[in-house]
């Protein structure tokens, strides 16, 4: 803030957006963490903050293709990740090392896209593959981190 004032940059908007990162580290159905995280993200989306998600450790399994929970009597919430773009959540960071440790590639994940309002509503990929060091930087840049 002080620096911005000195350099004569435009003042920050009265209600600056905060950066929220939801960190997902658990596989989807063995515990309630993944579903809870998704529900909190959907609620938080109404508050117009800058929200992104990170998937690391077993959290990368949340995005696996072809999930079918019919046999275990639980709600299949995998399709809901594809609706996140509609809620203004357009960045899903997926850690490369977490994928490769689990024998996965990005091909094993479902496709998630969002419509870019600033580019004629073109569909663009939401999933951003990122290595561990870069993800550590993303975490360091956040205002708030919520872990699940």
């Amino acid at each position: 803030m002080a620096e911005a004032a000195k350099s004569g940059a435009a003042p920050a908007p009265a209600k600056a957006k905060k950066k929220f990162l939801y960190v997902n580290r658990k596989a989807p159905y063995g515990t309630i963490y993944a579903l809870e995280s998704l529900e909190v993200v959907l609620i938080a989306a109404a508050f117009e903050q800058e929200v992104s998600l990170a998937f690391l450790d077993d959290g990368v399994f949340q995005l696996s293709k072809g999930q079918d929970t019919a046999g275990i009597g639980m709600k299949c919430f995998a399709p809901t990740y594809r609706a996140l773009g509609d809620f203004g959540v357009t960045k899903l960071y997926v850690e490369k090392e977490a994928l490769s440790e689990r024998g996965l590639t990005v091909e094993d994940l479902q496709q998630v896209t969002y419509e870019d309002e600033n580019d004629g509503f073109k569909a663009k990929p939401s999933i951003v593959l990122i290595d561990r060091a870069a993800l550590a930087k993303v975490m360091a840049e956040q205002d708030v981190i919520l872990s699940f």
Binding site: A45, F77, T80, A83, D86
Partner: peptide, 14 residues
């Protein structure tokens, strides 16, 4: 139809 596809109700703007 939105719920059927995404298992969630759409955001109002959608």
């Amino acid at each position: 139809s939105y719920y059927d596809e995404y298992q969630v109700a759409p955001a109002i703007r959608v």
